[in-house]
Design a binder for these strands. Structure first.
Length: 420
DNA sequence: TCTGGGGTCCTAGGACCC
DNA sequence: TCTGGGGTCCTAGGACCC
């Protein structure tokens, strides 16, 4: 059996933990730059705020209904996530952390000796008590069905006490007949459109479809999913692997026309990629830079380009990657446009310790020690104190974050103080 | 005025090999 | 008139996830 444990409205719940007076109040959390809604409390959902909504379009609704609006505080959410995952890992030796707010647990031979339903309630109680984050728990014989069970637990909290178990054919069929096809894990917008054209409306309908049609139209992934929903396990827990691509991309706080400002951003993004590369002990052999204007501004001239550079040698040095990224930027930058976003993506990794010596040109060997030192200093101070000359020396974060809450759990100066 | 960020996997088709 | 068969590797694009 598998369990899927999911934190309810995770970012909104994290903010609420530290401001209990916000219980029952509508809360939204905004994306970087305070742009879009990325998390909503149940009250906010009930008032009709869709996921991904541009914040400025809903400003009036927020004000009229006394919404509590937050900038995203990833340091807080990441730390809260770790606490939740730590507690969950006590309930099974087999755990897959699937995302910041979700984990699969696997139970081998538990059903004979355990009442999973009450075990689930115990999990819920432990996490709520230990972190203040509300969760839902779904049990089933496959991962895809556990996802379905979790949806039911979340949708009917009072009937299920937020824990649901699919352990019989009747329950499986009942659950699948209830679930609209577009809400199946792995069925997105395109696939659900296609399935509806075929007269498929529920997950149950989908499980009855011809396998050849499914494989032809939804690929092997769709076929696996169909099997999983029929109760035939095809997916096991996955173990974390090194990343194959690493990206650092940001929208700007305003439109940038000045080449120098964009160079600074791209240089900073390249350094961020290099730092992440070193964390997983990889070097990259290729790098992509992109820039584009604001797509939503139909009144302004549009421009969007990217370039992929094959590097002459594998590297994860801040200095070298920033240099290459700026070379790329130079090739694609065009004067006269108002740029809104840029990014650096590093690709084609090789392990740090098996760097092949190239014939003509190699990464500067001195950089290894230098980067090591930079990482140590920056880690110790907890911020990016050491920068390249091409980066902005004064500011660290060019982003609108007007409603940022304190780093309650990760900065000693920002922990909650109680005056007695 | 203001619209996020970071990933993965699969397939088809082209280039190339013997 | 008639022009083989069987592979691999790479890439772009499309789908999906949170």
């Amino acid at each position: 059996m598998f369990a899927l444990i999911d934190c309810n409205n995770f970012y909104a719940s994290c903010e609420r933990v530290f401001q209990p007076k916000l219980r029952k109040q509508p809360i939204v959390v905004l994306s970087n730059n305070d742009g879009c809604v990325v998390a909503r409390s149940n009250e906010a959902k009930a008032l009709g705020v869709p996921m991904g909504a541009p914040a400025f379009e809903f400003k009036e609704l927020f004000e009229k209904n006394n919404f509590h609006v937050f900038s995203s505080n990833y340091a807080l959410y990441g730390d809260m996530s770790n606490r939740v995952m730590n507690l969950l890992s006590n309930f099974s030796p087999d755990i897959e952390i699937y995302s910041i707010d979700e984990a699969f647990l696997k139970f081998k031979g538990f059903q004979e000796n355990f009442d999973l339903l009450s075990y689930g309630k115990q999990i819920k109680k432990t996490v709520t008590q230990g972190t203040g984050i509300p969760i839902s728990v779904g049990f089933a014989p496959t991962k895809a069905l556990a996802k379905v069970a979790n949806k039911i637990a979340k949708k009917f909290p009072s009937q299920t006490e937020s824990v649901h178990l699919i352990d019989s054919e009747e329950k499986r069929i009942k659950a699948l007949k209830w679930l609209p096809v577009e809400d199946i894990w792995g069925i997105g917008r395109q696939h659900s459109k296609r399935l509806k054209n075929e007269g498929i409306n529920t997950a149950y309908d989908f499980t009855l479809m011809n396998k050849f049609w499914v494989q032809k139209n939804l690929s092997i992934v769709g076929l696996r999913l169909q099997n999983e929903l029929q109760g035939i396990p095809c997916l096991d827990l996955e173990t974390p692997a090194d990343k194959k691509n690493i990206a650092t991309t940001r929208s700007f706080d305003a439109n940038y026309t000045d080449y120098e400002l964009i160079k600074e951003r791209v240089s900073t993004f390249a350094v961020a990629c290099a730092t992440k590369l070193r964390k997983q002990k990889s070097c990259c052999n290729a790098l992509m830079v992109f820039i584009h204007t604001n797509r939503h501004r139909k009144d302004l001239p549009q421009y969007s380009r990217n370039i992929v550079l094959k590097l002459p040698y594998p590297t994860n040095s801040n200095i070298e990657l920033a240099k290459f990224a700026l070379q790329g930027l130079d090739k694609i930058f065009k004067k006269g446009f108002a740029y809104k976003k840029a990014g650096v993506i590093v690709m084609d990794f090789t392990p740090e310790n098996t760097e092949q010596i190239m014939l003509f040109e190699n990464s500067n060997p001195k950089h290894k020690l230098l980067m090591n030192t930079i990482d140590k200093i920056n880690d110790a101070i907890g911020t990016t104190k050491i920068k390249l000359g091409s980066q902005d020396i004064k500011k660290t974060w060019k982003m609108r974050q007007e409603k940022l809450t304190p780093h309650y759990t990760t900065k000693i100066s920002e922990v909650i103080k109680i005056n007695c």
